[in-house]
């Protein structure tokens, strides 16, 4: 299968901090790919570069063979490349249903559709997806009143509502009650298999990423130090060193 995302020699510095240095990676269409690395190794920065949160210093990022590194955030999202945030972001004062309704891709999107009605069918879809992530009963509560873990799930459901082609997930299990983690893994696999969405997942929890991803990239100090199948990564000395803090 072809590549859906190609990151080619991407650099991103913040002043003196080399957050990303010469990163090249390819994500295969339809796969679940992992991105691991110790804290501060530049994973979130790479996500930000891919979806256009900030311009990159050098390099190229292609989504479905289209150069996206110069596009602003909404334009990248409209191509079908979405991300969730490490520090969960939802619309706190809106209820869950409205959070979902506003996340759907509008059928028309131009100056004249600013005042277009929101189709009623969306409610069914929203409720369906909310029950998929287990939030159906909380659908009428304000999203800001949900617990952190529930907000993460809501954010995932919102992303699914938009029907992206590819989804970048920033630590989907961080801060979540360990008993719920298996549920999340199962759902992510379902998202990948049933909805056909390519996933690129940043994950800290080794167990999670090993059971989820088919291919893993590992960052340390802003550089790509290894990539391969989970079994290879598990044994890779550089990865072990990076995680143990050996320089």
């Amino acid at each position: 299968m072809g590549a859906i995302l190609q990151v080619d020699q991407v650099y991103k510095y913040f002043g003196g901090v080399k957050a990303n240095e010469n990163i090249s990676m390819t994500v295969t269409q339809g796969s679940i790919t992992g991105l691991i690395g110790p804290n501060g190794s530049g994973k979130t920065t790479l996500f930000n570069s891919i979806v256009g949160t900030h311009p990159i210093d050098k390099g190229s990022i292609k989504f479905e063979d289209k150069e996206v590194s110069a596009l602003p955030v909404p334009a990248v999202a409209k191509l079908g490349l979405l991300r969730t945030f490490q520090q969960t972001r939802i619309y706190g004062k809106l209820n869950c249903i409205d959070n979902m309704r506003i996340s759907a891709k509008p059928s028309r999107d131009n100056l004249f559709s600013v005042f277009s009605a929101i189709p009623n069918e969306l409610n069914d879809k929203a409720e369906h997806l909310l029950s998929f992530v287990g939030l159906y009963q909380k659908r009428k509560l304000r999203a800001g009143d949900l617990s952190f873990g529930q907000q993460k799930l809501l954010e995932l459901a919102m992303a699914l509502m938009n029907e992206p082609k590819m989804l970048l997930l920033d630590e989907p299990t961080a801060g979540i009650n360990p008993t719920l983690i298996n549920g999340i893994i199962n759902r992510l696999i379902k998202v990948n298999e049933e909805f056909g969405i390519t996933l690129l997942v940043i994950e800290h929890n080794m167990r999670v990423i090993m059971s989820l991803a088919q291919h893993i990239f590992c960052l340390a100090h802003g550089q790509l130090i290894a990539n391969g199948k989970p079994e290879q990564i598990k044994k890779d000395q550089r990865v072990i060193d990076a995680y143990l803090g050996v320089q």
């Binding site: 979806v51 949160t53 909404p74 991300r83 945030f85 938009n162």
Partner: peptide
């Protein structure tokens, strides 16, 4: 309302 609650998120959602 989405802009009020989190403008960056709204942009990230396209």
């Amino acid at each position: 309302n989405a802009i009020r609650d989190n403008e960056d998120k709204a942009e990230a959602m396209g």
